[in-house]
Structure formats: structure tokens, C-alpha cells
Nucleic acid binder design. Structure first.
Length: 501
RNA sequence: UCCCCGAUAGCUCAAUCGGUAGAGCGAGCGGCUGUUAACCGCUAGGUCGUAGGUUCGAGUCCUACUCGGGGAGCCA
């Protein structure tokens, strides 16, 4: 008997096959049992008719607990009513590892409960889909660089120097010496770029920032390309081609998962070069403009309208329930809708509360400050494609960024803002290639030049214009899959004050 | 570090003005030959986060604490 996977069933129609998996859900109807089997490649409905298998097996399968490990043998047939389009008419089954009282039921659960059960939650459909998307994103990242002449260079995780800002690093005791966990491979990568021309590093990175938001993890995966002989325009082009390629690959490889996740496929299909290009100064003008004020006010009206709609619907349902005479399934449906509505109401309330604050922050924005998360969200919401923001004030940015030779006040850097409010997924810059200017910046920041001796060396021995950027994997996955929180986009997330497993 | 919200059954949530703690799911038992988070009937399941306070009476009001969620700053 051929053992196969759910994903390969399409090649085994009208054949007897064996599937090895776990019980995702089951329904029974007297003389008929439906088992939804999950095998890591997909879901398949397995039908057991009374008489089709020995009576004692029928009995056992009928009371099999959720997530029991089971192998099932039967005739594979095409079946439109079945999830995935195929089903198995079962002739035999073996219970490999029975399970009872599986904690994650096929109903709603709170995030805390799911995080405490992360080791099991990975089996759930939504997590599974996100994991598949993540896999493709990472594969596309490697493929893109490998196919475009980049050489992989693995940079150290224990590091001696800080890329940007020293207080946000995790300190580790390294045989009595203080080192940090890396927050970027960039400085190392610059030296490698002078050896290979085009390089990239890809690995976990660590930030000790005390950020408790849906966009932050303390440990996340970042890919960083670094290119010799390039300029800002070249980097922007690389960035938009790179991001477009990732999206294209996910659309090609994971359409069913995107659909299951409720991702905005239509807007993903629009992700093609060129992306929007705005300078920081233009962004400041937009933020402080009447247009932005109106945009925020319009948004607030939309939120208020939605709130009113939700409240009205809640009132309707409550009145219905009070009136009575409802069938049990109707009551249950109402209860479910109420829970959903109340959840959405809470979310809208937060938006309504935050909107004026964010509008105020934007309106009061003064040239020279770094853009805040809410400012980026506003800009990103005002555009239907990713937006590059370039030329930030020098004072607000890291010492290694190249000063714009036509305007001393700004540097040749860029952020890429994903659409629909997902915010920054790329940060990058052209690096300062002039020895004197770089040394000056090291002094300005109060850093010890001897700590940066090797980095300065790169400007002594054949310095060339060069630059690169970092792309956050979890943020990219969250944006593409339409998942609100990036903690769902890595198997075992590390957050500021919470490590579950 | 600061601001906002929350904690009630294993899970998700109700409980009107401060007046006897409820529903669905899950679990157990029974029924049903095409179910789609199946459906129908029955059963079990509670120290209302912790400690104080106000009150004839507190899940509900007040204070502190603990834990969780969201946001600001910072950032991928």
C-alpha cells in the first residue's frame, strides 16, 4: 500500500493509499464518520461507513479525540464537497497515538492561551498557513540574492561593536568580557562587500528595545544585502525589485494559504516596480498638510461610522435574543457574532482614541525629528504601493550614513514603508565612504575611534561608494499574509517582557 | 519609562440600577448514512486574578498589587 501525503492526493485518484497524520476534526452521523485528517501538507476528509471497516474499529474511530495520531488507508476519490477537493473512502485505519482533551478546540481562543500552547498552536490552520508563507518568503530571499550575483557571508552573532545606538543591545558575558548580541551584520558586511562586490547576510538579530507593539520582537530575522559601487538610486532599485520578487513568489506558491488567511491578494498583485519615492522633507510637508489632516479626519469619520454600525447590530441581536423563540443554532450563531462584534468594537475604539493623537503628532511634526511609527502608518495608508522615504536629517540617523553632498543637513538613507499601514519593512542607506567625514561622525557621536579602527580602514584602502539595507522577515510576512501581529509570523516569538516557550 | 483597556467554568464570552453566577464550545452519555467550526437531547463543571475597603448586601463601587493586551518613545 502506497503511503502518500494529502498534497499528493491529486496523483492518486481511484487508487488505494495510506495517509499518516493527525485528527484535525471529526463529525459522526450514526452510521457514518467523517474524519478530517491533517498531515502537515494539507487537510483531507476521510469517510468511514459502518460495515466498511470492522465494527470495533468503527467504534474506536467514532470516539477518537482531536489530534490523535492516526494512519488511514482507503480509496482516494475526487469529491467537490470535501476540503481540498479529494477524500478517502476508508477501508482500514491504525491509531498510532491516541489523544484526549486536546486544549485547542476548533473555536475561538485568546492570544495568551494560544501563546501558552504555542507548541500545539503551530498545528492550527492559520499558523500553518503563515508558516508556509514564511518558508516561501525566506526561500525567495535566498534565491533572489543567489541568482543575482550576491555571495552569502555569515556575520557574527556575538559582536564587539554597535551599529546604531548602544543602549538597545543585549549584553552577554563572553568569558568575562562584555559582548553584545548582534543587531545588524552591516559593519562586517561592508568589509565583505569590498572582497566580493555584492554580499548578503541572513540570520537572527536582537534588539533590547522596550517596545510592546504588534510590530516588535526582541529576536527577529533580518536579511541584509551590501553592494560595492552603488548609489542611492541603485539601492532603491534593488529594494523594489527584491520586494516585488518576494511577493511574486508567494503569490505563485502560496495562493491557497493567502486565501485561507484572508490576505489582500488584489493589492499584492499590484506590487511591481517602481515604488513611490518621497524625500523626508516631502513627507514632513505631507504630514503637516491640510491633506493629511483631512485624511485623518476622514478616517476618524469612517471609524465612528463603523462603530455606530457595530453598536446598532449588537442592539439588534440583543433584541432578537431577548424576544426569544430562536432555535438553538440561531442563538449560537448570534452569540458568535456578538463576540466578533464586541472584539471589533474594542479595536475601533482604540483607533478612535488614537487617531486624534496621531493626527496631532503628524500636524505638530517639525523637520529634524525621526519619523514616528504613527507617522509612517499615515504615509503608508495614504499610498497603495510601498513608499520609499529618503534623505532623513543627519542628526536623526546613524553615524555611518553618507552625508548628501548637495545638502549637508541630510543623509542618503531610505526606509521602505509597506502599504495599508504595515509600516517600515526596510531600512538602509548609502554608507559614508570618506575617511575624514566618517571619523568626524564618530567623534560627533562621542564614540571611541579606536573601537572603529577596522571600520575606518575600509575608507583608507580603496574606498568606494557602497550601501545596503536590512529587511525584516517577520514584518514582511505579516504584511503579505495580512496578519496584524508579527509574533504570529515566527514559530516561537521573543517579546519584550514575555517568553512563552 | 509613560498612557489606555482587561482578568467570571478547561476555552470564548454574558450578567441591566449594587440584590440567588449564565450561554456556547470542549468533556461524558444517547440519537442521526453526506457532514463542512455538523445537528438534536441529557449530565458534570465556579474561592468571579490577589489583598484590603465602602455597604444590610459587591462579579459589579473604591485603593493597592499581580498578570495579560494595545499604544507612545525606539526600531526591521
Amino acid at each position: 500500500m502506497a503511503t502518500t501525503t494529502v498534497a499528493q492526493l491529486k496523483d492518486h485518484v481511484d487508487q488505494h493509499v495510506t495517509l499518516q497524520g493527525w485528527l484535525y476534526n471529526s463529525r459522526s452521523s450514526g452510521k457514518l464518520i467523517f474524519l478530517i485528517l491533517r498531515d502537515g501538507t494539507g487537510l483531507c476528509q476521510c469517510v468511514i461507513e459502518k460495515g466498511g471497516v470492522p465494527d470495533d474499529l468503527f467504534e474506536q474511530l467514532g470516539r477518537l479525540g482531536q489530534e490523535s495520531a492516526v494512519t488511514v488507508t482507503g480509496l482516494c476519490r475526487s469529491e467537490a464537497r470535501s476540503v481540498g477537493g479529494y477524500e478517502l473512502a476508508v477501508t482500514d485505519a491504525r491509531i498510532v497515538g491516541p489523544a484526549t482533551d486536546y486544549p485547542i478546540t476548533p473555536k475561538e481562543h485568546g492570544i495568551d492561551f494560544l501563546m501558552k500552547n504555542r507548541h500545539l498552536h503551530l498545528r492550527s490552520q492559520r499558523q500553518w498557513c503563515i508558516g508556509k508563507v514564511r518558508h516561501t518568503v525566506i526561500d525567495a530571499i535566498r534565491r533572489f540574492f543567489n541568482d543575482n550575483g550576491f555571495v552569502l557571508v555569515d556575520t557574527p552573532i556575538f559582536t564587539t561593536i554597535a551599529g546604531e545606538g548602544e543602549q538597545t543591545l543585549f549584553e552577554v558575558d563572553y568569558f568575562g568580557r562584555k559582548l553584545h548580541l548582534t543587531q545588524t551584520g552591516q559593519l562586517y558586511l561592508e568589509s565583505a562587500a569590498m572582497a566580493y562586490g555584492k554580499v548578503y547576510c541572513f540570520g537572527p538579530t536582537f534588539r533590547a528595545e522596550k517596545s510592546k507593539t504588534r510590530r516588535h520582537l526582541t529576536e527577529f530575522w533580518m536579511v541584509e544585502p551590501e553592494v560595492a559601487y552603488t548609489d542611492l538610486a541603485g539601492l532603491l532599485e534593488l529594494g523594489e525589485n527584491f520586494v516585488s520578487y518576494i511577493v511574486e513568489r508567494v503569490l505563485a506558491d502560496n495562493r491557497p494559504q493567502l486565501e485561507e488567511l484572508g490576505a489582500d491578494i488584489a493589492s499584492l498583485e499590484k506590487i511591481r516596480p517602481p515604488f513611490y519615492r518621497l524625500t523626508y522633507t516631502e513627507v514632513v510637508d505631507i504630514l503637516t498638510s491640510d491633506r493629511a489632516a483631512k485624511f485623518m479626519a476622514d478616517q476618524q469619520v469612517q471609524f465612528e461610522t463603523r462603530k455606530a454600525e457595530i453598536e446598532q447590530r449588537i442592539t439588534e441581536i440583543e433584541a432578537q435574543d431577548k424576544k426569544g423563540g430562536l432555535k438553538k443554532w440561531q442563538q449560537e450563531k448570534n452569540a458568535r457574532e456578538l463576540i466578533e462584534l464586541r472584539g471589533e468594537l474594542a479595536e475601533v475604539d482604540v483607533k478612535i482614541e488614537n487617531n486624534p493623537k496621531h493626527a496631532q503628532l503628524a500636524a505638530d511634526f517639525r523637520w529634524g525629528k525621526d519619523l514616528g511609527g504613527s507617522d509612517e502608518t499615515i504615509i503608508s495608508m495614504m499610498h497603495d504601493k510601498p513608499v520609499f522615504v529618503t534623505h532623513y536629517p543627519r542628526e536623526a540617523k546613524a553615524f555611518y550614513m553618507r552625508t548628501d553632498r548637495t545638502n549637508d543637513a541630510v543623509v542618503e538613507n531610505f526606509d521602505l514603508l509597506a502599504p495599508a499601514g504595515f509600516g517600515e519593512i526596510i531600512g538602509g542607506s548609502v554608507r559614508e565612504d570618506d575617511y575624514g567625514r566618517l571619523l568626524g561622525r564618530v567623534h560627533d557621536e562621542g564614540y571611541a575611534p579606536e573601537d572603529y579602527e577596522w571600520y575606518l580602514d575600509l575608507r583608507k584602502y580603496g574606498s568606494v561608494p557602497h550601501g545596503g539595507f536590512g529587511l525584516g522577515v517577520e514584518r514582511t510576512v505579516a504584511w503579505i499574509s495580512g496578519e496584524k501581529h508579527i509574533r504570529q509570523c515566527i514559530a516561537f516569538p521573543r517579546m519584550m517582557d514575555k517568553v512563552y516557550l
